[in-house]
Amino acid sequence: MSIEVKAIDKTFGTFKALDQVSLKVATGELVALLGPSGSGKTTLLRIIAGLETADCGEIFFHGDDARGKMTKDRNVGFVFQHYALFRHMTVFENIAFGLRVKPKALRPSEKQIKEKVHELLKLVQLEWVASRFPSQLSGGQRQRIALARALAIEPKILLLDEPFGSLDAQVRKELRQWLRRFHDHLHITTLFVTHDQEEALEVADKIVVMNKGKIEQVGSPEDVYHNPASVFVLNFLGNVNIFHARSSAEHKSGEKPAKMYVRPHQLIVSRSPLSENSVKVVLTFVNLAGSIVKIDAQSQKGEIFQVEMSQEEYRALKLTKSDEVFLTPKNIAFSEYEI
């Protein structure tokens, strides 16, 4: 089912959580809402689920106005950061909950419930925990059970609020890939909230970058990474270095570049200056652990630069800590102009 949100406003007291937010999600898409905490991404998700009401604006599910519908009638699967499993019920009963609370006429028989629950447990690869209580499961297992519980009602939309936020790094990575495969298999329209840009870039079809209650950019992972619409998006999606341009070259319409933003891998390191934009720096820290070499450098003015290069390049340059070198931008990720 497609989702369309039009000009949503939401304030909590004096805090403006959402400011004229509009968004379209196509059927079957896997979309990440990415932003720092307080950017309004969770609020947007909760408004779509009906757990929060917007001050004004419209929501459409598959073209139908959803505003008058209560959460329980929206047929939306919701997964919470802290799982929100019912601790007094077994895993089986947790998953069966959505089926058992259906009105009598629609409620499946006990046998059908049993089949459905076991099918879902199989889907999340946890068939053997049916009779356990949530407190007896690990974090990753709990989150998979929470997902199975949300899927029991066969939702047309799946909403996940920082689903991997409280798991440790290893489990996070596994579940992230699992979610991707899982979505490719089921094709439910899915929205997930995250503040982890790596997670969003790796999993989503489309990324919605949010900041201070507004949408900064909507686009594919490549798009938002390589063509950021604002300095905020640029900064949020990865490390970036700032060059203050000395170039006198004028841009069209008579603007002069004032600041150039350059990603760590977009820098050339050399022993002598290559252009008038080259900056003289001293290497302050070198991290060789990993597939790439990460270097911190400092200019005479005290500006900090981060550089990334391959191990081969590093060896070819014969660099060591406290060497004096020149940094020149190879590509520019983003420029700001003064008029």
Binding site: R46, A49, G50, L51, M70, T71, K72, D73, R74, N75, V76, G77, F78, F80, H82, A84, L85, F86, F97, G98, V101, K102, A146, R149, A150, A152, I153
Partner: peptide
């Protein structure tokens, strides 16, 4: 959140 979870499941 337990309340929210139950509501989203149709209770």
């Amino acid at each position: 959140e337990l309340e929210d979870a139950a509501a989203s499941l149709g209770a």
